[in-house]
Amino acid sequence: MDQLLQHVVNALVLGGTYALLGIGLTLIFGIMNVVNFTHGALYTFGAYAMYLAAVALGLNFFVALPVALVAGLALGALLEFVLLRPLRRSDIDTTMLVMIGAGIILQSGTLWIFGGVAKAVPTPFPAEPLVIGPVSVSYVRLFVLAAALALIALTYVTINGTKLGRAMRATFQDHDTAALMGVNVSLIYTATFAIGSALASAAGALLGPVYVVFPQMGDLAAVKAFAIVILGGLGSISGATIGGFILAFAEELGAGYISSGYRDAMGFLIIIAVLLVKPTGLFARAERIG
C-alpha cells in the first residue's frame, strides 16, 4: 500500500511535466499540421538557456526561468519565419523533414558549443524531501508541478479567452475560411509556433534543474510528447493534459508492478490500444486531420 501511494504521488508529479511537454506539440501539430521534430531540440534549448542564465550569468533561479521561456519564444518565431513560412504550401512530409534538418542542426550545434558532458543547474530548493507519512516528494518537483499547471492554465486561457486564441481556433477549424474572415493566418502560424516552442523551452528550463542538462536530453522527451499528443488528440490542450497524466500513471504502475524494462513501452502500448478502440485519440474534439 505504501508503495502504491508513492507510485501515485510520483505519477502526479511526473504527469504535470508530461502534460507541459505535450501541449506545445499538440498546438503546433493541430493548428499547423506540422510534425514538429524540433520539439525535443527546443526542450534542450530551454534547459541550456536556463543553464546559461542561472549558472553563467548568475541570475536568480526565478528570474532565469522566464528568460528561458522568452528565449524559446524568440527561437520558435525565428524558426517559423525562416523555415516554415516559405514552405506553407508544402505537404506534411516536406515540413517534417525540414524540421528534422533543423533539429539535427540544433542538437549538433549544442554538442559543439557545450560539449557532451552533462551540466547541472542548482535550485534554491532544499535537498531534503517533504515527507508525509509513507510518501515523500522533493520540493523542486512540487514547484515544477505547480509551474507546469500554471503554464497549462495560461495557455488554456490564451486559446479560449483571447482574440489571438479565437483566431488560432478559427485557423485550426479551417484556415481558408479563417483567412476569408480577415484572420492574418501567417501571423497566427508564427504565434502558434512561437507559443509551442516557448512551452517546450519552459519544460526544458523547469526540468533541466530537476534532471541534468545534456545535448540529447530532448530525444526521449520528444518521443513522450508524441505519445501524449496522440493520447489526447490533436490540438486539444485539456486532452494533452489528461494524456500526460495517463502516460505518467501507466509508466509508474507498469514499472512498479509489471516490468521496469517495459516502462517506456507502456505509453506506446496504450496508444495502440486507444487506436483500436477510438482512432482519433481519447479526447479528440475535431474531425480527423490529414
Partner: peptide, 20 residues
C-alpha cells in the same frame, strides 16, 4: 533486479518499488 533504459531521466517508478 530492476532495469532502466539508458536514456531514461526519471527512475522514480523503479525507485519507489525498490524503496518498498
Amino acid at each position: 533486479v530492476e532495469t532502466m533504459d539508458q536514456s531514461s531521466q526519471d527512475m522514480t517508478a523503479q525507485l519507489a518499488k525498490l524503496k518498498a
